[in-house]
Design a protein around this nucleic acid. Structure first.
Lengths: 345, 345
DNA sequence: TTGAAAGCGCTACCAT
DNA sequence: ATGGTAGCGCTTTCAA
């Protein structure tokens, strides 16, 4: 009695729909999931009841009963960085088209938060996990390995991937970018960096290697301020750099925001780019081609990484492991524009 | 027998943990959720078992049993736009701190996709929904109203919110921005726009109203190309504009990407900004202050909108409706920089 | 094509 | 402080 009276307040269930349509609950379930397997007549009655009650299936129940979540977990370090936003977009496009829901977590560059996110995602029984980076807590690694869901690590390369690895060598990119400046004839080459996340640190290590190999010293050439990278930060760091007696001939900035900020500050200070200072960014954000002078940068293929990660995940979930390799190196590309030039002879 | 043998392959359950720790399942459940209510000794045994099995709770089961999802649904039109990325960041910050999980959907500016997302979110029994915009399909509105979860509509203002409304009047902002250019003495004021999403369209309507009130014609002054807004698009549109015999004295661009593209194209073409053409953007993205000349723009408070939306949602979920209004107008601000100047007399 | 029974893994409620 | 019982709302058998 009470249960019946409740129906006006309670959230509608499959049973409510079934009663209204005068069929069994299982038929409603089928009509919703595989309409073809139900006769047109019943289907119509059921659709009408669903609409009338504004019925929305309880996914928790569905997931529990079917042990299929139709969802994918994605973890990125931040949403603030356009790089990851674009990568996410690419992931979303592929997954939504294939009927998967994407659950995004943000680790704020913390391995501990990443582990927490992994726990939650596994708890939701996501059918694949796509995660930026190759560094995880030991427990996170263990959880991922035990989970049996495809795991795709992106944006870096590792010899020991949990499962699939799609990215580029950040340290090699840093090395080649520095080499590019060295080959232009520069000797005093600075490195500009904000918060030292793992990938930026890898680029820095590539820079160090290139400098050492060329017998160039980089003491006092590291310009660093542990804040979130931004145009403003690049500008602030450049101010500091300019106060030193000897201004570097070239600056390799760990991303384009810093590079643009540095570029703008140079203009303000009357330091001509590239005549006095060459500036090289990283990531090739859209504005790089449009600043003045236009900004040289290192392009990484973030959309391609996202697209390939999603496609690979879908392949693996379909139990099609024969078509996949364990590592995909998508490389990078140095884009020389106006902000870098030859060292004066 | 078989069930027991399975344990090595099966995903671990609460029962597995309970058996290993030699306690009842409900005690495990409590130890995980409210550690204080369990004696230290048992808690330790349970923690050990959890760790040993790498147990991850099945959230679907938990949600079904408790009818609490601890999650919040957020729908944005796109992730590609930095505005929404920053807004999302603000939402995330508040919610994660309060222990809520954020589920993000992307409607791709389609009301139909939005309705689908709403269905999925309600199906997951999210405890609040935060959604960009005030336009929804009739069914979407009905679902939201019936759902009884707090609904917060953002970035625009409406007299008839579903529940809570936090934003600004896009049309008034468009009006005031145009008025700002008119007050500088400009007469031929163009409007530059890419894809005509509802908010951009509202800004356009504000522009029209301002022009009409000032008895200014705007025929042939609408520069439009239905593509995703980008710096490149702004540049392309400016190329077209420049081919006309009479170049407008001022351009109001529906966002900063278009504005920066137009600005750069003007430089290339030797059209001095602001001497020949004044350019006004919208959104005040970070680069606006750093372009040269720096870009005048209309700042909207996207982070504040996100923060307030999250806080209001949390308040409402706590059943604290007394502290909340139904509408919050967070306004906007015209930031005059170098790209806009007085019309020559 | 349709339905009945059983159970997914957890938590609320009531005991002890 | 700990445990037994029941049931969340759906889907997976299996049967008709």
């Amino acid at each position: 009695m009470l249960g019946e009276a409740d129906i006006t307040k309670r959230r509608k269930t499959l049973d409510d729909v079934a009663k209204l349509a005068k069929v069994s609950p299982i038929t409603v379930s089928r009509a919703l999931r595989k309409p073809d397997t139900v006769s047109p007549e019943l289907r119509q009655r059921i659709d009408a009841a669903v609409h009338k009650l504004a019925y929305v299936p309880n996914l928790a129940a569905s997931r529990l009963a079917s042990s299929r979540s139709h969802s994918i977990g994605v973890i990125v370090p931040t949403l603030y960085n356009v790089i990851f936003a674009e990568y996410l977009l690419a992931l979303h496009e592929v997954f939504l088209e294939s009927g998967y829901q994407v659950i995004v977590f943000n680790s704020h560059y913390s391995l501990h938060e990443e582990e927490k996110a992994i726990r939650t995602l596994l708890g939701q029984r996501v059918e694949a996990i796509i995660i930026v980076g190759i560094d995880h807590t030991p427990m996170a690694r263990r959880l991922l390995q035990k989970s049996k869901v495809p795991v795709i690590e992106t944006f870096e390369l590792t010899d020991d991937p949990i499962n699939i690895n799609i990215g580029l060598s950040q340290s090699q990119a840093g090395y080649d970018a520095t080499k590019f400046l060295i080959d232009l004839g520069h000797r005093r080459i600075g490195f500009v960096i904000g918060n030292l996340d793992v990938r930026a640190a890898a680029r820095l290590s590539g820079y160090r290697r290139a400098m050492e190999e060329a017998n160039l010293s980089y003491t006092n050439l590291l310009a660093h301020k542990a804040e979130r990278s931004s145009i403003a930060l690049g500008s602030a760091i450049m101010s500091d750099v300019a106060e030193n007696s000897k201004i570097p001939e070239a600056l390799f900035c760990s991303d384009d925001n810093l590079a643009l900020g540095a570029l703008m500050k140079c203009r303000q200070l009357g330091l001509h780019v590239p005549e006095v200072v060459s500036i090289l960014g990283f990531h090739d954000l859209e504005f790089a081609a449009y600043s003045s002078p236009s900004l040289s940068s290192v392009a990484i293929h973030r959309r391609e990484i996202g697209k390939l990660a999603a496609e690979t995940a879908i392949n693996m979930m379909a139990g099609n492991p024969s078509t996949i390799k364990r590592q995909f190196d998508l490389g990078y590309e140095i884009i020389a524009r106006q902000s870098t030039g030859k060292a004066p002879r």
